[in-house]
Design a protein around this nucleic acid. Sequence first.
DNA 1: CTAAACTTTCAAAAAGTTCTGAAAGTTTAT
DNA 2: ATAAACTTTCAGAACTTTTTGAAAGTTTAG
Lengths: 168, 168
Amino acid sequence: MELAEAKSKFVETWGKLGSEWGINRTMAQVHALLLITPGELTTEEIMEKLSISRGNANMTLRDLIGWGLVEKQHKPGERKEYFFADKDAWKIAQQVAKERSKRELDPVIKVLDELTKVQGDINDPEFKTFNKSVTDINKLAKNVNRTLEIMLKADGNWFWKGIFKLFK
Amino acid sequence: MELAEAKSKFVETWGKLGSEWGINRTMAQVHALLLITPGELTTEEIMEKLSISRGNANMTLRDLIGWGLVEKQHKPGERKEYFFADKDAWKIAQQVAKERSKRELDPVIKVLDELTKVQGDINDPEFKTFNKSVTDINKLAKNVNRTLEIMLKADGNWFWKGIFKLFK
DNA sequence: CTAAACTTTCAAAAAGTTCTGAAAGTTTAT
DNA sequence: ATAAACTTTCAGAACTTTTTGAAAGTTTAG
């Protein structure tokens, strides 16, 4: 496979995975493009390479900055803004985990905490089933949360080593 | 909070989480409804409780069965089909992990494996960056995959115990 | 101050996804 | 064989999300 072909395949695959996981396809593609680009890119270059509009490029880049995945850079003497992505895979994973857990998991845990407090007649099967399901899911969500906290503090190597020790 | 209110809050919250994670909102809601229902429900009852059409209910239930989250039940002497959800939170998590990794992670790993094989000039920064990013992401994806495999075999209690030992 | 170079905004259009409901299909009982 | 009870299908409608592009805004240089 040619390098050029491989690059577009990477961008395409990353975009597809993103959209399956609730991340805007274009956003994932712009990120992918920056990941395989040695230096920085301007808005103009991104628009061109991915055939997207100026508005789309601008908003997507802003979102990526909001996710902590991309940084703006200014070059001395230049007016243009350059965009650059951190290429450390473990850091990217940490950043995504951090944001998604903050934006999506935390609010759910908050609701589940409230729902576990709902009182009812323990002999009512409706209440019993509700209470059990909510309580169990809440526990699971909290375990996931604690695990993510470990992951966010950890060095990648150390983390996986620990996980794989579980095997033996 | 009233039980009735709590129930709809649960269904709504689950639906929202689902849609943020690339799972159809209605599908997550139907699953939530079945999770807090002691017995089984008919298509008719689901349609009514969630105000959705027959077609939607039917397709959603089929999908949920495809995900291994819901089962059809037949009652002797009855023509209707009843639907029932396994309520064990750990099993649900395993099932979702299994399906998503099969449907989404595996195909990506297959592409990444191909892309890591692409040959190029090690002095070309374009190639170097491409190769490094792809290789690193591939490694990460494989670690995730191995971890999911452990999770799929494991008992929930044992799995979390192991994870939290990482702390000390 | 003015113009050029660039970025941001946002209303409307396009694209993508989900839902409806009526018709077709299937199964079972008589 | 017929009818009743139920399930499945799918074309089009409704809804949601994403994208465009032109206008407005901002910054810098002279």
